[in-house]
Amino acid sequence: MAVPKRKMSRSNTRKRRSQWKASRPELVTCPRCRDYKLPHTACATCGTYNNRQVLNPS
């Protein structure tokens, strides 16, 4: 079975992991309450989508 010959250095490990990032979610403002929300999704703050009440936010 093929195995690594050398231990991977801390530097190389960290260089690899430096590319591992989370991306920001793309957000739009809700036309009703002006709060940020995900596009094409009901607003979590006011619970509306397309001027229609979809959710009852708590």
């Binding site: 309450c33 006011c46 619970g47 509306t48 001027n51 009440q53 009852n56």
Partner: peptide
Amino acid sequence: TTAATSETAEQEVPAQEQAQGAEEATAAAD
């Protein structure tokens, strides 16, 4: 339809509060 749903959401609330907007409606919807 929005008006209808918000109305149904706040059955006991008087109809005058309707005009104040949907934020109140959602608050009362719970």
